[in-house]
Structure formats: C-alpha cells, structure tokens
Design a protein around this nucleic acid. Structure first.
Lengths: 277, 277
DNA sequence: GAGTGTGAAACGGTTCACAGCG
DNA sequence: CGCTGTGAACCGTTTCACACTC
C-alpha cells in the first residue's frame, strides 16, 4: 500500500479495475516471464510460472483473469504474448523519465541499479543539494544542483521522482517535486511524506523491514525459552494504575496469551481477566 | 530444483499473536513515538500519533489493542512507556548482529545507513566475493571475503543476513547463509529465493516499486477521458493454435520495438523469434 | 487428459460506532 | 467530557473446487 490517495472503487463493473494486490504482483510475473523468454521457452503453465514467481498457481490464475483470458486451456500461457500484455498493463511500453534526488550512497546505488533502466525507466537526472557534487558524474550522468530541480522536471516531462535524501530534507524536496509537476514519488527517506490528493507515494524503508524480521526472529527464539530479561520500563508510566500495569506486563510476558482473551466474547460482555478491579 | 516443494511458509501459524499487518506498522509507530520522545512530549492521543505515523486513528487503536491496554482513557498514551512496549514487542531491546553480503553500491549504502545502527541492529560484518575489496573499510568496517562467511556467522551468532548481491549470486549466498545458521534474510536482489521451512525472507525490490508507480501513473493519464477507449489490444486473446501464435509473436516483436530504447547490457543478442513448432 | 478461468467460500484486515473508563 | 478499547459490519484478497475448453 503506502498509497492512500486512491479513492477508486476497485470493484468496478468495468472490465478495467485490477485489484491493488494483483498490480503489485504483475512485476513479479513479468520478471519471471522475461527470464523464460530469454531462454526461448514458448509457453508456461500457471503452475510453473507461479513457482518461478514465488506465488501459488490459483492466485496467479486469478490475477491473470483480471487482465483477460490470455491463456490456452490444456496448454498454458504464451510467454511472449503475456510479457507484452503485462508490460502494457503496467505502462512499461512507454518510457518513463525518472529523477533521483539525493545522491548519497543510496542515490548512487539507485542510479547504478540496472533494474531501472532495463525496463521502461530512464534516469533523466540526478539531483543533489551539495554544490560540490554538481557536475560530477554518477553512473555516467552528471549530478545537477537542486536549484535546477524545477527546470529539469518540466524540461524532461518527468512525472516520477525518487527521494533518497536524508529524512530531514525529504518533505521539502517532496513539496518541490510536487509543485514542479511530479505525481508519483518513491520515497526512501524514513519519513511520512504528506502530499496533495492525486499524488502517489510509495515508501521503501530499509530499517522497517529489518524490524519486522527481528520481530519474527525473536518469536522463533522465544519458542522454547520464554525468558524475559527485562530492564525496568523506562520513565514513569502514567501515574495511575501502577498495579494494573504490573499485571498487564506479567500477562504479556507470559508470552502468547492474547487469544484466550477473545474467547470471552460470550453473551456475558464483561471485561475478561485484564480487569484489575 | 525444478518445482522444489517450497511454498512460501506463511504457515499462518499458531495465530495466537499480533496480526502481520499490525507488526508491519509497529516500526512506524515506534519511529513517530521516538520523535515525540525526543521532543519530550509526555503523552499522545491516538489521533495525533496516527497522523504522525501516517495511518488513521481507528487502525492505530486496534493495533495497540493487540499489544495490550497501554493507554489511558480520556488522556492518551504515555510516550515513553509505549516506546518501550513496542520496542520490546519488536525485539529491539536486544541487539541483533547483522551481516551484509554484497558490498556494491547498495551494500555500501546499507552499511552507512544510520537507521540500522540506531535501533537494535549492529552491522557485524560486511562480506563480498571480490578479493580486491577484502580489507577495505566501508562505513568504518573492513570488508571480509566470502570464504569467511560461515565462520563470521557462527562466531558472532548472527541470525539476520542482508543480501545485496547481484541477482545471479543471491540464491547461492542465501544457501550458504542458511546453512551457516541464518534464519532471517532481507533480500535486495531481484530474485525469488527459495529457503527451507523456518527461514524468513523479506524482499525489497526497487524496480518493482517503480513499476507499481508507473501503473498508477499511466492510469492517471488516461483518467481524464470519460470514454475508456484505451489501447485496444492489437490482437484477440488466444483462440486458434499455430497461426494465431504467429500473430501474437508479431505483436510481441512490435512491443519490443517500442520499448527498444534500452541499451541492453545483456550478453545475448535479441530475443530470437521463437518458431511455433 | 491437462490446464485455464471463475463463481463461491473462507480469511484477514479495516472501518464503524459506541460502551466504558479516567 | 474526552479518548481508549473493542465487538461487529464491511471489504478486499486468497483459496477452493470444478465447469469448461483445447
């Protein structure tokens, strides 16, 4: 998701109206198909393609059914044809100029990232606020100064911007991009950007992904040794209910009891064990 | 392995616990709370915090309700206390050593990324297959050669690995990481990794995000027209066999021409016309 | 027989709306 | 009164299972 600005009933009666979840998987299918295409494989079954894309076949077939009936029963899908259809659906048959703002380590990595250029995207400009960087080539493209931002965007008809600046600069850069006409933003800065209606923002957050992994990792570890090496809760909790808090914490530390709380949903309607009083 | 029996685990599990969607938002809340904490704000309402985190307040309250009753009715949430609770829930009260494999542009960016170190994660080692890199410091840490991979992991008790290698090397690196004891992987390579049961993989794919943006961008462009007459598929869906196939191929070639802008860096020439058998 | 395409059921997540507590 | 906590309705997504087609 990361895109809240779309109030469009996906369940339109129209033929168009691909579910968001499906859209998010199309690039995956496309990649798998491209690989097959390069190996000159003429057709694939939903099963094979699904495996290659890392999803299950029922999902894949359902996804494709939103695009149309592009398969052949008893045979499978024509690889080349499907590559074309998905590319078209994703809008990759046209060329998208992209600007990258913030040419630090990450921005440079993005500029060099082959995956961009290889499929419909073209790095139109690299922009950075550091005057010392201006003119220096990164990935074969001379970095330009932020002052030029508006001009670059309108001159090149850019509608997609990538923000790879530090968090502190991101909103400001975002505002300028939007003012200059950008309507889609890929944000790598760890900040929530606020944008006007009609502008799309997707977020990639490196540390968040790690934190999610840590959560699962912790859970794995705690499976057998539920020890809670707790340091005292920092600061003063809300003055009231200290006793209550202790109870709650005990409960939480008791590991995984959260479910049984719900079994309480009988006609009773009373508050379960959490109740301190 | 052709059709390895590797389904994405997603074992849905013991389901006793916090919904996945909620887990994915906890880091967001944590970040917002940390910012508030740094400004010494003592309490927040669900409304305020939700805004800061970029979600709506109902969702936030629901999310927190899975953690326990940590708020105070009529008042809000104690910032410090909540920071602590969420950190604990995410497993960030302990230190997670992490290895990064593949120290190219992206790997270097990750090594330098402040967001890692700042919250429970510690870069234990940087690993690369290039002997020329070995010993060179990146982000203050000497790069080590891939040969050392197993030793590094077991010596440091690393359980989280980040793969930032080219796509071609990713699965191989992944296998070695898993064999060495890693159970959580953050994959930046544009490949589907197959891992044994019990190993967690999260994927960050830069070009996929862009493709999703392109989809919406394309839609915006065509939105102004009430009539839907978009690109009519040049040919009909599959119906007949051989002859039809030939037609399809022609289209696909056409598509290729359109997107032909790319200076294909691939070693192989063009996609050979696949003859229908 | 093999494999697509798709209604319908099952599921998980989000939103609503209000009871309950401070 | 203000704001949390949560059952219940709602909605999008996934999965199932099978009719249909090649």
């Amino acid at each position: 998701m990361a895109t809240g600005r779309n109030h469009r009933p996906a369940t339109t009666s129209r033929s168009r109206g691909i579910p968001e979840a499906t859209v998010a998987r199309l690039p995956l299918y496309l990649r798998a198909l491209t690989a097959l295409s390069e190996r000159s494989v003429p057709t694939v079954s939903s099963e094979e393609l699904a495996t290659a894309a890392g999803v299950n076949s029922a999902k894949l077939r359902k996804d494709f059914s939103y695009l149309g009936s592009y398969g052949t029963r008893g045979v499978g899908y024509d690889v080349e044809y499907l590559v074309y259809q998905i590319s078209r659906e994703l809008g990759l048959t046209q060329d998208w100029p992209v600007v990258i703002v913030g040419i630090g380590n990450l921005g440079a990595a993005l500029a060099n990232y082959g995956g961009f250029a290889s499929r419909g995207f073209r790095v139109a400009a690299l922009i950075d606020a550091d005057p010392g960087l201006a003119g220096k080539p990164v990935a074969g493209i001379a970095v330009q100064h932020t002052d030029e931002l508006e001009k670059i965007i309108s001159d090149n008809g850019v509608s997609i911007g990538v923000i790879a600046t530090p968090a502190g600069a991101a909103q400001q850069v975002c505002d300028r991009l939007v003012a200059a006409g950008i309507t889609s933003i890929l944000n790598f800065a760890p900040t929530v950007l606020s944008v006007p209606e009609g502008v799309d923002v997707r977020k990639v957050d490196l540390s968040i992904e790690l934190q999610i992994l840590a959560f699962h990792e912790q859970r794995k570890a705690g499976e057998e040794a539920p020890e809670e090496e707790e340091t005292a809760p920092p600061a003063a909790p809300p003055a009231a209910a200290v006793t209550k808090r202790a109870e709650k914490r005990a409960e939480a530390a008791d590991a995984d009891k959260r479910a049984d709380k719900r079994t309480e949903s009988g006609p009773d309607g009373d508050v379960p064990a959490v109740m301190p009083a």
